[in-house]
């Protein structure tokens, strides 16, 4: 996959004026996420890893963002979103129920663990969950579509875009602390922001992205 922001690494800003000590501390802590699992059982963890790989497939040419570890950490430390849908149990319970149910659906349909299925089979199962078609006893009355939207998508995608690897990929400059943004109109960028590569101008963007600090 060709990068839209070639040569841009948001972590190169770590020791520049763009970031201060609290910012560095926060991001260091985020990168140093414990590998897990601390909250989930081994079976749940295997299922979670397989779900994450289907929700946000990652390129092989760079270290992946450890998505299951972030979901596990969020549940382990009970970092709540501050709200809960009335139809859903508390987030930890929802995830445990959901993962067990996904695993049970895989066993029922394919006589294999979810993580052992082919990607297409996994996708088919996830799609049925997204449409709310899964409502057997393992779900314990939890609406599968709501679980998919409010936890599977929300927690995994949030974890992905909270990681510097994703920031480099989308050309985001990282936390605006202390240095924020000045040029806010469309098509404008500050000198400390990534340069987007336009077709045929990739090398120019790559050169400019070496200088982004």
């Amino acid at each position: 996959m060709t990068s839209r922001f070639p040569g841009y690494d948001v972590l190169a800003k770590r020791n520049t004026l763009s970031w201060n000590e609290p910012t560095r501390r926060a991001i260091d802590k985020r990168i140093a996420v414990p590998p897990g699992p601390r909250f989930f059982s081994v079976t749940e963890w295997e299922t979670l890893c397989a779900v994450c790989a289907r929700i946000v497939p990652q390129p092989r040419d760079r270290p992946p963002v450890p998505l299951p570890a972030y979901v596990d950490e969020k549940m382990f430390e009970n970092q709540s979103d501050g709200y809960r849908f009335a139809e859903l149990p508390p987030q930890g319970e929802a995830w445990k129920t959901g993962l067990a149910a996904i695993e049970a659906e895989a066993q029922a349909a394919h006589r294999a663990g979810f993580h052992e299925l082919a990607a297409t089979e996994q996708d088919a199962l996830l799609r049925r969950m997204q449409k709310g078609e899964l409502d057997g006893p393992p779900w314990r009355g939890m609406p599968s579509a709501l679980f998919f939207n409010k936890h599977v998508l929300h927690d995994i995608v949030s974890a992905y875009y909270a990681h510097p690897t994703a920031w480099s990929e989308i050309g985001w400059a990282g936390p605006a602390s202390p240095r924020g943004f000045v040029r806010l109109d469309k098509g404008m960028r500050d000198p400390w922001e990534a340069t987007e590569a336009y077709p045929g101008k990739e090398d120019k963007a790559r050169r400019e992205n070496q200088r982004v600090v």
Binding site: L17, S177, P178, R179, G180, V182, D190, P191, W192
Partner: peptide, 12 residues
């Protein structure tokens, strides 16, 4: 925020 050290933003 960042004061004079962050002059590239704050002067502008």
């Amino acid at each position: 925020m960042g004061g004079w050290r962050n002059w590239r933003q704050n002067v502008v």
